[in-house]
Design a protein around this nucleic acid. Structure first.
Lengths: 231, 231
DNA sequence: ACGTCGCCTTAACAGAGCCCTAATGTGGCA
DNA sequence: TGCCACATTAGGGCTCTGTTAAGGCGACGT
């Protein structure tokens, strides 16, 4: 099985934190608890955990903000997996969290089993090569995306994409196989609260597919739901 | 196997109540009896049972009303499983009961064995929440469902489902063994207040079973009531 | 400050796929 | 055997997506 790991739990509700602690320790993990976002960030520095369990609803600093800071401050090499805990039904929260850099999520109320399973899965995944490379670039089959340089290469040839097309492709390619609704895509590539018709995404997809040429199948339509990058 | 549990029986007929009490106690359960709906509701507050056996035909408050109140007042976390007892042939009652929030049912006249089995089944099902894996996907025997990816695999092969078929299968598979009325299914997969004939669900089931091929028995018909995923 | 260029959105239309209804067939249960 | 619920089929209507073109807006350079 998996050897024991260091887990940091950032959770303000004492009983939930205790529940998580007991269960994780039952799995042989070393657990540390922080009750505020500030403590959490300090604890990350101090104890260098292998995974962080992060409640989105915290007094003081927002969970999303913590997520972003962990992603921003740390060197890519020391990228720590984050599992976030969200209120039930908050699908928006899930999307925001994933965008802020979380790796997985559980919704309240949760069973300890589910949380343990998620943590194990994230740990397993973090030990395997991710689609995202160390410098933040994405490589999937014939496609390379360099977010920093804003450059995309397909089968060795450079693609000339508009800003929106670039963001759309990057957003989808970061999670191959996962479906996103048009609404989620709009939030991701144009910012939240940006008022547009969802159908404008369709037009972006058309343009993108045209430029992908014979690789247009990389962007798949999921009828009644949205789009996804072919896995 | 199962440790003893607290059972509340709400039943006005003295001899039936006694029959249930003796049999359940024979299984090692702790049994409390209420003879009216009002007493039943109080007893739920007082003794916090693990499961409620509820006769639909009660003097005074209707069994359905009790069912609804138990569902309305309690937080989701403290959801107590309800097994209702209906008069034979009253299949309408079964449907109404399930829609009022009951989890399972037995029809009068019943054998004690059947009741015990139902109670055990409900306890078992409600203790093992959902068969969901780390990434939120559902796996039951040969069937894998990935909600986030919107992909279904059956015995390793990918199924091409319509949106409705996907939602229907996911809804049923999330609670194997639980029976759902057509009305509940419509609410779940098309949203509430969506006006359609309940028979349209039958058509969806046909299409789904066709694509399930030799696994069509995964979706079971419960005559007079609705459908369920085979446990 | 002005003009030009390019990008994004909207709107409209066409086509494909899906879902509902209704009618008929079939099987279980009394 | 009769009745009722479910299974099955086909067709029509409707929703969703693909596609195109035009208008508006902002960016950039002059």
């Amino acid at each position: 099985m998996l050897e024991h790991k260091r887990v940091l739990v950032i959770e303000d509700e004492e009983d939930i934190a205790e529940l998580l602690k007991v269960n994780l320790e039952g799995q042989g993990h070393e657990v540390r608890v922080a009750h505020t976002g500030e403590d959490g960030l300090k604890a990350v520095q101090a104890s260098e955990p292998d995974v962080v369990l992060l409640d989105l609803m915290l007094p003081g600093m927002d969970g999303l903000e913590i997520c972003r800071r962990l992603r921003a401050n740390a060197a890519p090499k020391t990228r720590i997996p984050i599992v976030m805990i969200t209120a039930k039904g908050g699908e928006d929260d899930v999307v925001k969290g994933l965008e802020a850099g979380a790796d997985d999520y559980v919704t309240k109320p949760f069973s300890p089993k589910v949380v343990l399973a998620r943590v194990q899965a994230v740990l397993r995944r973090s030990q395997q090569p991710a689609p995202e490379k160390a410098d933040g670039s994405v490589q999937i089959r014939e496609l390379h995306i360099h977010p920093g340089r804003h450059v995309v290469t397909l089968a060795g040839e450079r693609l000339d994409l508009t800003p929106s097309e670039f963001n759309l492709l990057l957003f989808l390619a970061r999670r191959p196989g996962w479906v996103f609704t048009r609404s989620q895509i709009v939030d991701a590539i144009r910012g939240e609260n940006y008022a547009v018709t969802e159908r404008s995404i369709d037009v972006q997809v058309v343009g993108l597919r045209k430029k992908l040429g014979k690789f247009e199948h990389y962007v798949e339509t999921v009828r009644g739901v949205g789009y996804r990058f072919q896995e």
